[in-house]
């Protein structure tokens, strides 16, 4: 039996200042993307790190210049509460695309960055 929620991870390795493409396909077994979260191994890198574009299913989620730190929380926050959850986009194999721009403020390079997508199949999604 499929679990109602899945967390899909988009992994980036940031090797220096500059743009790093984000490209993924959401899991076809899930209907909706309902949350986003960023997690990185270098906190200092968050300074001036922005998305130059972030789209799901060709719909803009964040505009050019949107700071990545706005979708990260501290470890003290309960896992369920960490997600930016003001989205409800089609998953079902849709494309996640965008670009992560590092501003050269990391403590050391390379560092790892992860974008978590929360995917769900809810009862009303099944009826849609």
């Amino acid at each position: 039996m499929r679990r109602p929620i899945k967390y899909q991870i988009i992994k980036l390795t940031i090797t220096g200042a500059g743009n790093f493409p984000i490209s993924a396909e959401t899991d076809k077994a899930y209907k909706k993307v309902t949350g986003l979260q960023y997690s990185g191994t270098d906190t200092a890198a968050l300074k001036d790190a922005v998305f130059t574009k972030f789209e799901i299913d060709s719909n803009e989620i964040f505009p050019d210049g949107f700071e990545v730190k706005l979708i990260q929380t501290g470890q003290e926050v309960s896992p369920n509460k960490r997600f930016y959850d003001d989205i409800e986009e089609r998953a079902d194999g849709s494309t996640v695309s965008g670009s992560f721009q590092d501003a050269g403020n990391a403590t050391a390079y390379p560092y790892n960055a992860r974008i978590y997508l929360r995917l769900e199949n809810r009862q009303d999604d099944a009826k849609a």
């Binding site: 906190t43 501290g74 926050v77």
Partner: peptide, 9 residues
């Protein structure tokens, strides 16, 4: 400071 990052914005 970024180290202080706690709850969601």
């Amino acid at each position: 400071p970024l180290d202080f990052l706690r709850r969601k914005y």
